[in-house]
C-alpha cells in the first residue's frame, strides 16, 4: 500500500539522533514489550508479512509519533482482535472475559536459550528457475498495490541491473496466511543518479531485493 511506512527518499524528517545512548532499551516498558512479543503464544498464525502490513495500517500521524515498540504492541493487538482471540475491551482492561480453548502451556524460561538460535528461512524448493541472470537490465513495475508489497515508491518504474539471484522466496504480497507462493528473488542494483537528482555525477548505487513479478526486462 502507498502508506506512511514507505519512507525511502521522503524529505523533511530532520536530523538523526546520533548521540542516542547505547543501551538496547530506553524505558522499562520497551524492554517489557519486546520480551512479551518474543515469549507469548500466538493464538493464531501471524505471518511476518501480515504483521508488517498491520503495522503499515497504523494511522499515519501515530506511525510517525508512537515509539517503535508501541507500534509493535498496536500491531499485535490488532492481529489478535482480527483473529477474534481477544477483544478491544480485554486489551483495554487487561482482564480476560473468556478463555481461549485448546492452547498449549506458555513458553517456559528454560526454552529461551534454544529458541534464540531459531532461524526462519523464506526460500522454498522450486522447479521454477530464475528468468533473469546477473548483469541483465531490468525495469521495475510502475505501480504499487493497495495491499502489502515490498517495492518502495522511490524505486518504481526505474531501470536497474540484476546483481544476484537469491533463491525462490515467498512473495510478501500474497503471503498473509504464511503459505503463499514463492518467486525468484533478486538483488537489483540501481545507479543512485537514476533514482535521485542530487546524486548526478556519482557512481553510488542503491541495492534492493526484489521479486520477479516486480521486474520487467529493460
Amino acid at each position: 500500500m502507498d502508506g506512511i511506512h514507505d519512507l525511502g527518499g521522503r524529505q523533511g524528517y530532520g536530523p538523526i539522533d546520533v548521540n542516542e545512548p547505547p543501551e538496547p532499551f530506553h524505558a522499562p516498558w520497551e524492554a517489557r514489550l519486546f520480551g512479551i512479543t518474543r515469549a507469548f503464544t500466538r493464538p493464531a498464525m501471524f505471518s511476518i508479512d501480515l504483521f508488517r502490513h498491520v503495522r503499515e495500517c497504523i494511522d499515519p500521524a501515530e506511525y510517525l509519533t508512537r515509539g517503535y515498540y508501541d507500534q509493535w504492541l498496536l500491531a499485535y493487538a490488532v492481529l489478535m482482535v482480527d483473529a477474534e482471540a481477544v477483544t478491544v475491551e480485554e486489551l483495554a482492561t487487561g482482564k480476560s472475559a473468556k478463555a481461549i480453548p485448546n492452547m498449549p502451556p506458555p513458553m517456559t524460561p528454560a526454552k529461551v536459550a534454544t529458541l534464540t538460535k531459531a532461524m526462519s528461512r523464506f526460500d522454498r524448493e522450486s522447479d521454477t528457475g530464475p528468468t533473469f541472470a546477473p548483469g541483465d537490465k531490468v525495469k521495475t513495475i510502475p505501480f504499487g498495490s493497495s495491499g502489502h508489497t515490498r517495492l518502495p515508491q522511490y524505486a518504481r518504474g526505474r531501470e536497474g541491473q540484476i546483481e544476484s539471484f537469491r533463491g525462490v522466496h515467498t512473495l510478501p504480497d500474497t503471503n498473509m496466511a504464511g503459505d503463499g507462493p514463492a518467486q525468484p528473488l533478486y538483488t537489483v542494483s540501481f545507479l543512485a543518479a537514476d533514482l535521485w537528482l542530487g546524486a548526478a555525477g556519482r557512481k553510488d548505487h542503491v541495492y534492493l531485493d526484489l521479486w520477479e513479478s516486480y521486474l520487467e526486462r529493460a
Binding site: W29, I36, A39, P43, G67, V86, T93, K95, S96
Partner: peptide, 30 residues
C-alpha cells in the same frame, strides 16, 4: 504506553498465553 503494555501482559497471562518469567529471560538474553 507503559499502561498499555501492563494491560497486555496481564491479559496474556490470564489467557494462559504468557509466562512473565519468560519475558524476563528474553529481556536478559537480548
Amino acid at each position: 504506553p507503559e499502561l498499555r503494555v501492563k494491560a497486555l501482559e496481564s491479559l496474556l497471562v490470564e489467557k494462559g498465553l504468557l509466562d512473565p518469567n519468560t519475558v524476563d529471560a528474553w529481556i536478559e538474553v537480548y
